Amino acid sequence: MNTSTAAAQPLPSTPEHITPEWLGSVLGERISSVRIEPIGTGQTGATYRVTPTYEVPGSCPATLVAKLPSQEPGVRERVALGYRAEHAFYTRVADTVAVAVPEVYHCAISDDGSEFVLLVADLTPAVQGDQIRGCGAEDALLAVEALAGLHGPRWCDPAWLSFEGIAMPKADADFARGMGTLAGIALEKTLSGLGDRIGDADRAVLAAAADLIEPWLGLDADRFCLLHGDYRLDNLLFHPAGDAVTVVDWQTLTVGLPARDLAYFLATSMTPEARERSEHDLVAAYHRRLREHGVRDFDFDRCWTDYRVGMLQVPMLITFGYAFTAATGRGDDMMLTMIERGCHAIRHLETISLTTQLV
């Protein structure tokens, strides 16, 4: 993998800048032409399928996927920390954990973080999960076992406490206070923007959750790991054989209670009925795989409680995502689906009352 904090030539800030000359320089090949096609929804970044024509046929990939910063300058400035996080993950973390990620051909970032490029293998025919449609128990099992491969190998690793380049570090009092303030702002923007598409019951859950974000971030400080932060179907690629999943989009790296990732995935990526039927078995599978990765002194009852408490990751991340990233038609529909599912899970698991007792 070719990685750097600043490429030898200017980083491609738009798809037009992914020229044959630039691509050839990072792949070490002679390329005569490049075809670029947009893929994905592009709320925080812009993703493209790249098809090069090589002057000399060889073993190079027929297609690749390139990820660039958002094409909206305002969004690019707001989420520059996310580009730093993704660069940090692929260059400093990926080979220290046990989660499948795409092969990386090039990863570079500018000094100020506003320019970023990631060039990875195109995993077609693997299929991206569909956040709106949701998934069943079989795909969810693949996802939670993969998640344990991120969390388990470096569970409570003290290096995470000083790890640079992540979007949200482990919360101290000042950080938690600031996040609590931002949660209120994000809530107002979300309720205003989505209007009466959010029902009264869900509005009440979102408001109660926002009030708890500051103390919630400080809960169980002795259990922590690196979190994906936005672990959901749209960021997973399922392989045709049905026995593997690859995880992408590492812009929301966070350090905190591990079960936040687990709760966020199950609450937002399954219908309430599907989740309620299988969540106990899925949490047990995650816990079992953690033990296989060497995690000890963490019994299932504690894992289940953490899962219930971790549900506040759902309203926090969704409202932040809606308020501070680019809006798209599918994005709004997706946010609403996730809000409905997440708020249902919070009510079902009595997360608000449990968290209130614990804080």
Rank of each mutant, 00 (worst) to 15 (best):
E276G: 07
S110T: 14
A327H: 15
D297H: 11
D243E: 15
A284L: 10
P52G: 02
A267F: 06
E77A: 15
V99C: 00
Y231K: 09
E214Y: 01
T41V: 13
L312D: 03
M334P: 05
A221F: 01
E103V: 10
W216C: 02
H151K: 07
D157N: 07
G24T: 12
D230L: 01
A263I: 10
V93D: 00
D332R: 13
L253Y: 05
A7D: 15
Q128P: 11
F298T: 04
C225S: 15
A259R: 07
T319M: 14
P20H: 05
R296N: 04
P240H: 09
E55W: 02
V314P: 02
T124Q: 10
S70I: 07
P15N: 09
G321E: 08
L147R: 10
E340P: 01
G28L: 03
E77I: 11
M270V: 10
E103S: 13
T305D: 11
P102N: 02
V79M: 05
P52N: 07
D281I: 01
E21F: 06
Q313D: 11
H17Q: 14
E279L: 00
R289S: 06
I132C: 01
E138A: 14
P258E: 02
G58E: 11
V255Y: 00
H239Y: 12
F298P: 03
A176G: 00
E279T: 03
D174R: 13
S110M: 04
E292V: 13
A183V: 06
A173K: 13
T51H: 04
L262D: 06
L219N: 07
G134Y: 07
H280K: 08
